[in-house]
């Protein structure tokens, strides 16, 4: 996971901090989620997320607390969908996550479980009205 953390750090550099819509524009996306936040990025959004319990482990159900941050002048997010799969094995989870709004651009996804070691991808579909934009993040599991 150290590579992943390095990536998260790289994503947190100043250009992404210029979030016109976020009230606390001085903070990186998801700073309020607490320690151990990771990030996925699409062209117009950053999705910061934090697993609970952390870290994600094979065979252990977990939830994700997430915050969606529009970059530059991207439209405000109106919803979030969360799913995950193993690209090499060509299969998804055996569970369908449910996502509830936690106020503002914050969400909580529940019911995830990674049932194998290997490379997983968490897929975030950010909804903004009728538009959907995808942010993907690799999660290598031992």
């Amino acid at each position: 996971m150290s590579g992943a953390r390095a990536l998260a750090r790289r994503l947190a550099v100043p250009p992404l901090l210029a979030l016109p819509l976020a009230a606390a524009a001085a903070e990186p996306c998801g700073a309020r989620l607490g320690a151990g936040v990771e990030r996925a990025e699409s062209a117009r959004y950053v999705v910061a997320f934090r697993p609970a319990p952390a870290p994600i482990a094979v065979g252990r159900a977990f939830a994700l607390d997430a915050e969606v941050c529009p970059k530059r002048a991207a439209p405000r997010p109106t919803g979030l969908r969360v799913d995950a799969h193993m690209p090499e094995h060509r299969h998804g989870m055996n569970y369908r996550a449910t996502v509830a709004s936690a106020g503002g651009a914050r969400y909580r996804a529940e019911g995830l479980l990674f049932h194998m070691p290997g490379r997983w991808q968490i897929v975030f579909d950010v909804e903004a009205g009728a538009e959907v934009e995808r942010a993907v993040r690799d999660v290598p599991l031992e």
Binding site: A61, Y95, R96, T98, G111, L112
Partner: peptide, 12 residues
Amino acid sequence: ASRTRHVALEHR
């Protein structure tokens, strides 16, 4: 009951 609430029924 979280696993029961979230288990996905798939063709596979």
